[in-house]
């Protein structure tokens, strides 16, 4: 597959395998991403997509295989991976909930600044300058994603869609060469999804390669130059949108049984239907975890309200 020259290869994962005890979540997956590319990673729930991302970013140490970024092999340490130039977002949003929107993005700039404790205590001109530049850069990013007007809000108080955007801004703050997005449109309405599509294109136009996991097939096929399909930890197929859409095995994988002699044009619909289900299940799971505390707070509210009216 590597027709591009090595300098153009941003990410090269070869033979990545991840075992949890007896379970092999990712089995010998190879994947390359080149500069200027948007690559999609799809697959049914539990296929190992997120696990693969975690292997790429050093959150998991792969059992086998290696990951290299622009020709250098990455150590499996998250902060070194980010420093090298790979940034990511999380499937279940992991913002710093009690920091402001601006502060979240500033944390993202951690690897691109180096002021330590001493310069913070002494506050020399170098420190002030670095701090001012960071703020400026962070505000630019917030403008880019359209959240500049909420810079001083606590990130936990943002609506869901904006939280996902903020996660992207925070990742971009580390000035990456490759951005990994784990289900960036989960829980979004159609308009927000369209907006995210535009955002991903804009990011690509900044010269940042993108690898994106998504259950929304239209989103993936609109966006991606190449799509890889992961099923039960193994890469089933990789190719352009058309190739993947037309492949019987993909449909079989989503529906769980061989799908023989199906007419070509229904293939996409079938996958979409299956995906819609998966996405639903997914969104449900997401909202469950994300909104449980909020729901609790609401019941607490209701109680106090009751007490008040008594």
């Amino acid at each position: 597959m590597t027709t591009a020259t090595t300098t153009a290869t941003v990410l090269e994962a070869s033979g990545v395998t991840m075992r949890f005890g007896g379970l092999t979540a990712v089995r010998s997956v190879d994947l390359t991403v080149n500069t200027g590319e948007i690559v999609g990673l799809i697959g049914p729930n539990g296929a190992g997509k997120t696990t693969f991302f975690n292997c790429l970013t050093g959150l998991y140490v792969p059992t086998e295989g290696k990951v290299s970024y622009k020709g250098t092999v990455l150590p499996p340490k998250p902060h070194l991976v980010t420093k090298a130039g790979i940034a990511r977002t999380f499937q279940n949003i992991r913002l710093f909930a009690n920091m402001t929107v601006l502060e979240n993005v500033l944390v993202g700039r951690h690897t691109r600044t180096k002021e330590g404790l001493w310069s913070a205590l002494l506050r020399g001109p170098g420190f002030r300058k670095a701090e001012a530049t960071s703020r400026e850069r962070a505000m630019e990013l917030l403008e880019f994603i359209g959240l500049a007007h909420k810079a001083d809000h606590l990130s936990r108080n943002l609506p869901y869609g904006e939280q996902r955007k903020l996660e992207i801004a925070r990742a971009l703050a580390s000035e990456p060469g490759l951005l990994l997005l784990d289900e960036p449109t989960a829980g979004m309405n159609p308009q927000e999804t369209r907006a995210t599509e535009e955002l991903v294109f804009a990011i690509r136009d900044k010269g940042i390669a993108v690898l994106v996991i998504e259950h929304d097939m239209r989103f993936i096929f609109n966006l991606c130059d190449r799509v890889a399909v992961l099923v039960q930890g193994e890469k089933l197929i990789e190719g352009t949108s058309d190739v993947v859409q037309g492949d019987d095995r993909v449909i079989a994988a989503y529906l769980g049984e061989p799908f023989e002699g199906a007419p070509e044009d229904t293939a996409l619909d079938a996958v979409e239907a299956a995906e819609a289900q998966a996405a639903d299940a997914d969104a449900d799971a997401d909202t469950d975890t994300a909104e449980a505390p909020a729901a609790e707070a609401q019941t607490a509210d209701a109680h106090t309200a009751e007490g008040d009216t008594k």
Binding site: P78, T82, M99, E103, A120
Partner: peptide, 26 residues
């Protein structure tokens, strides 16, 4: 001074979500 700086923000980030903090390069 420490809390209002790069290092202070990374402390708070660790407090808020250690995994996300390390994934942000801390």
């Amino acid at each position: 001074r420490a809390s209002d700086s790069r290092i202070g923000r990374s402390w708070i980030a660790i407090r808020e979500d250690e995994t996300a903090a390390t994934a942000m390069g801390i």
